[in-house]
């Protein structure tokens, strides 16, 4: 005798649907942080740890220029400080992008060039930002050059690695397809090679910006007399925790704004042909199933040996 046991799915217990949505979880996060913050504030010595409202007031005064604080730096207020940092970031970022793309292409195409650069790329990748921050300060003084170079040093290896993986992951079977149909090389470059590089290029942009920004702020702390990094150190030197935390929150807001207002729309436009995915998937060359399928299905063709994408997504975050 066979007994069929079925269990009816238990109806969602009490909670309305919107509470369980990812969107709600996302909105919930800052409130949880705020709760923990208040908890710590009331359990710890409040002279050391500022209340959330103290930080909020500080941030408001910084933005509205009503605090009366004049920084002991040529850059007098947050806007000028931020402008300087942004300028350094942008210049360094584009240099890293161009330099990294050129080296990345060369390294991806030629094994010899790869051998030439490999150890040094890994070395720089593993180097703490503090090391070159201090060195750049000593070598170049407190101008713009040091912080810009910091962005270049931090960002370039990531661009190199991502572009290299992109070149190594060129879809051979699509190129063969195009050749068999006698499609001219320039058309293959435009319609096959460049689009297949795009996900890697976008990953490169995101990583280079993120690590460049980190390297820059640290360098500004140690090797600059202005900029956001310098400003956060100003509040540290003044023993004002609300200043340090306030600026940390400014950083977070800036990062999120850039993500939502620049990177996401760019990526949406470039990748409207596939379902949404994040930079790590892109760096892994996951082309939304379609491409991957192509690689796996051609079982009787030689597939490129496994690529170490771990580096592209790992590194010193």
């Amino acid at each position: 005798m066979a007994t069929v046991v079925t269990t009816a799915p238990s109806p969602g217990r009490g909670l309305p649907g919107w509470v369980k949505s990812p969107k709600f979880a996302r909105i919930l996060f800052p409130f949880v942080v705020l709760g923990i913050w208040y908890f710590i504030y009331y359990t710890l010595d409040s002279r050391i740890f500022p209340a959330p409202q103290t930080v909020a007031v500080f941030m408001w005064e910084e933005i509205t220029l009503t605090s009366g604080v004049r920084y002991s730096s040529a850059a007098e207020n947050i806007y000028v400080q931020f402008g300087i940092t942004l300028m350094r970031l942008t210049i360094g970022f584009f240099i890293a992008l161009i330099l990294g793309t050129i080296i990345g292409l060369a390294v991806g195409i030629s094994k010899k060039v790869d051998a030439f650069f490999h150890d040094w790329v890994m070395g720089v990748l593993a180097m703490p930002a503090l090391v070159y921050a201090l060195f750049l300060g000593l070598a170049l003084g407190f101008g713009n050059l040091g912080p810009i170079l910091a962005v270049v040093i931090a960002g370039t290896p990531f661009v190199i690695i991502n572009i290299r993986e992109g070149v190594r992951n060129t879809p051979k079977e699509l190129i063969d397809m195009a050749r068999s149909f006698e499609v001219p090389q320039n058309k293959i470059t435009r319609h096959v090679l460049l689009p297949s590089l795009m996900p890697f290029f976008f990953a490169a942009i995101r990583y280079a910006y993120a690590v460049g920004w980190k390297g820059l702020v640290i360098t500004e702390v140690f090797a600059s007399d202005r900029g956001m990094g310098w400003t956060i150190k100003f509040w540290y030197d003044a023993h004002r925790a609300h200043g340090v935390i306030g600026y940390a929150i400014f950083f977070i807001i800036f990062a999120l704004a850039l993500e939502k207002l620049v990177f996401d729309p760019l990526a949406d436009r470039a990748f409207k042909w596939r379902p949404k995915m994040d930079a790590v998937q892109m760096a892994e060359g996951d082309f939304g199933g379609v491409q991957r399928e192509g690689f796996l299905l051609i079982e009787d063709q030689e597939i490129e040996e496994g690529v170490d994408t771990t580096v592209a997504k790992g590194g010193n975050f």
Binding site: E173, S180, F181, V183, W273
Partner: peptide, 24 residues
């Protein structure tokens, strides 16, 4: 002039169906 149909479709994932045909 040869035409080729492969084991996997080998389409350009970033081009529409029509553009895939126009590509060749």
């Amino acid at each position: 002039e040869p035409g080729y149909v492969f084991q996997a479709a080998r389409l350009l994932p970033w081009r529409s169906v029509m553009d895939n045909l126009l590509f060749v």
